[in-house]
C-alpha cells in the first residue's frame, strides 16, 4: 500500500506527513553517499563484465537508476553490496539482450584493446570476450566477487545447478580462448 495513502490516519496527520517528508530526504542522502563512495568499484565490476568503458558506463547508469528506485529495499538488505552487484549484473545481462547491444557486439574485440593494458590483462580481457555473457557473469560473480553459488543463482535468476554448469562452461571457454598461456593457472580453478 503506498505510504502516502496509508499514512493519513485520523489524529496522526502531522506526524505521518512529517515522517514522509523527512524519510524521502534522508534516503536520498544515503543513496548519494553510497553511490559516490562505491563508484570506482561499480565501474570496475561493470568493465569486467562489459569489457568496454562506454558500455560499462551505460550499465552503471542503468544500475544506479534502478538502485535509486529500489533504495528502500537495498538499504534493508543484509548485504547492500551484494544487492548492488545483483542489480548491476542484471543491468548488464538486460543490456546484452537489447538490439543495440547485438548490433555493436561485432566491434567488441577491436574496441577492447586499451592503451594501458598489460600483456596478461589484454590476454585475459580478450579471452573473457570469447566467453558468452551469462557464463562471463557467472565467472565474475563467483571468482572476482567471491559470491557463493546460491547468491550467484539469485543474481542470475537461475538455479544453483545452472550456476555450476555456466561456471564450468565459462571456465572451459576461457581456457580455450587463452590457449596454453593460462592452462596452468586455470587448472586449479573449479570446473
Amino acid at each position: 500500500m503506498p505510504e502516502d495513502l496509508d499514512s493519513e490516519v485520523m489524529g496522526n496527520l502531522p506526524a505521518t506527513r512529517a515522517r514522509r517528508i523527512v524519510v524521502r530526504a534522508e534516503w536520498r542522502d544515503e543513496y548519494v553517499e553510497y553511490v559516490r563512495s562505491h563508484m570506482p568499484w561499480l565501474g570496475k565490476l561493470a568493465y569486467l563484465l562489459c569489457q568496454d568503458w562506454d558500455r560499462a558506463d551505460d550499465v552503471v547508469q542503468t544500475a544506479i537508476t534502478q538502485l535509486y528506485v529500489h533504495w528502500g529495499k537495498a538499504r534493508a538488505a543484509d548485504n547492500v553490496d551484494a544487492y548492488v552487484r545483483t542489480v548491476l549484473t542484471r543491468a548488464f545481462l538486460n543490456e546484452r539482450r537489447s538490439a543495440w547491444s547485438r548490433r555493436v557486439q561485432l566491434q567488441d574485440f577491436d574496441r577492447s584493446v586499451e592503451a594501458d593494458d598489460t600483456a596478461t590483462a589484454l590476454a585475459v580481457r580478450q579471452a573473457l570476450l570469447a566467453v558468452p555473457p551469462r557464463q562471463r557473469a557467472a565467472l565474475v560473480l563467483r571468482y572476482y566477487c567471491d559470491m557463493s553459488i546460491e547468491d550467484t543463482a539469485v543474481a542470475l535468476r537461475c538455479t544453483t545447478g545452472t550456476v555450476k554448469s555456466q561456471t564450468s562452461k565459462g571456465l572451459r571457454a576461457l581456457r580455450r580462448a587463452m590457449g596454453g598461456e593460462a592452462d596452468g593457472r586455470l587448472a586449479h580453478s573449479a570446473g
Partner: peptide, 30 residues
C-alpha cells in the same frame, strides 16, 4: 580459484577512464 581471481583482477586493472556516469541524472530518472 585464487589464480582465476588474480587473472580477473588483472583484467579489471586497466586504469579507469573518466566516467560518464551521471549520479544526478540517475536520481532524476529514478
Amino acid at each position: 580459484m585464487d589464480d582465476l581471481r588474480i587473472l580477473l583482477d588483472e583484467a579489471a586493472s586497466t586504469p579507469a577512464r573518466r566516467s560518464a556516469v551521471d549520479l544526478d541524472l540517475a536520481v532524476r530518472t529514478g
